[in-house]
Design a protein around this nucleic acid. Structure first.
Lengths: 219, 219
DNA sequence: ATTCAAATTTAGTCACAACGAAATTTGATT
DNA sequence: AATCAAATTTCGTTGTGACTAAATTTGAAT
């Protein structure tokens, strides 16, 4: 039972969708859309994953990762995030490009290189976007956050995390010197999904609705 | 016209066989054996490569890389050798393991990462086994060498290069502290493919026939 | 010139992972 | 309960790159 890159990608996608979803099963359509394949293709692969014991599948209902499936997903995510950290820190790859590079390298990273990279970086706990790196033994640190968008005028917090999937956003933040770990204060918050005005290190920045929703805040 | 990993591997193999061969075309069987596939599979791929304009093919005679094919081979070889140098120098991967790691990474290394790695290493000209690294613009430095096995008692020389394909040999040399760049003197040479006794840095070492044939000497 | 073994190619198959089109199931609405 | 749209699955096909078995070509030996 070989684990192909395709299987790794599906497993990783199911893991990600399970996270954001409210505990219920991951639908075939959601999976297909996330991976950019047709529902028919996703359906076929789901059947294969079920046969491999990586997911439990109820026809027309959706899938859930088994322990075995989660282990594979976490392994790949560890590869991905370690690589992002490594590319950023050791090779100076810009913030908004590490994701795409890691996306292909994650599938061919040997366990030995994984070890060497982790050691070289001092066993980092977070990648450059603030996403936690699963541990060597396959555990994902649980770090509750809220969207910056939910804060109100006057609230203070620390920006700790943002999705690595949208390079545009990352460039916007990078251009303004905003990075995970930075503290801030909400100066003004407009209703109806309006922009958030927040002060980072003295400077006030405008964070549009989508951006504010993507930025995660500690606690 | 996509360049798949398979196409890269075939192109690279043809390049390598062309080098060691005496200028004549590379046979399907040699290609198949080198890649560990059946002659039928190699034959099918040769037809595809010819269709892509990467090789010229005469049925039942063999193949030769076109300029386009050579360019692809050299690009992949550059990736491979840069990666070997990088893994060895920056991550401390042992000498005898860099080849296998590079073998998979070479196919997914982006041009951007290639640049960063080359810069980081100061644009190295040789990999850890002494193999020359093709230049950015796709030129392979020509460095004539002879096999250590061809030397006679009393000859001196500098060991500069050894194939990265046999980890066993590399471990043997590494265990004795012998590396490309080391000067030596042939103390004794037995006839009939017998062992070569050579002094490296004061120590005399026994180099069996196969090993002595694999070791390349400057000039 | 014929024969023969080795090298090479062709023909037919398989596994993988995608696709579009068509059938099926679901759950919400009437 | 019947209907209907959306989600899901099935069916048949495609493209890669491997395989085995069966031609075919070559070049050397008779």
């Amino acid at each position: 039972m070989q684990i192909s890159p395709a299987v790794e990608d599906y497993t990783k996608a199911i893991y990600a969708l399970q996270e954001r979803g409210d505990g219920c099963a991951v639908t075939t359509n959601a999976l297909a859309e996330r991976l950019g394949v047709t529902p028919a293709s996703a359906s076929a692969m789901v059947k294969k994953l079920a046969g491999m014991g990586l997911v439990s599948h109820v026809r027309y209902r959706g899938v859930q990762l088994t322990a075995k499936g989660s282990a594979i997903a976490l392994e790949v995510i560890r590869h991905h995030r370690l690589l992002e950290a490594y590319l950023s820190e050791s090779l100076g790859v810009p913030w908004d490009r590490v994701h795409d590079e890691a996306e292909v390298l994650e599938h061919v990273l040997s366990e030995e290189l994984e070890e060497l990279i982790a050691d070289k970086l001092g066993n980092p706990t977070h990648d450059p976007h603030g996403d936690p790196i699963p541990t060597r033994d396959g555990l994902m640190p649980d770090e509750p956050t809220v969207s910056l968008q939910t804060l109100a005028t006057g609230d203070c917090g620390r920006f700790v995390r943002i999705s690595d999937a949208d390079p545009e956003m990352l460039r916007y933040l990078a251009a303004r010197g905003i990075a995970p770990g930075d503290g801030f204060e909400v100066i003004d918050k407009q209703p109806f999904d309006g922009p958030v005005f927040a002060r980072f290190a003295g400077e006030v920045h405008v964070l549009g609705g989508t951006l504010a929703r993507a930025m995660r805040v500690e606690l």
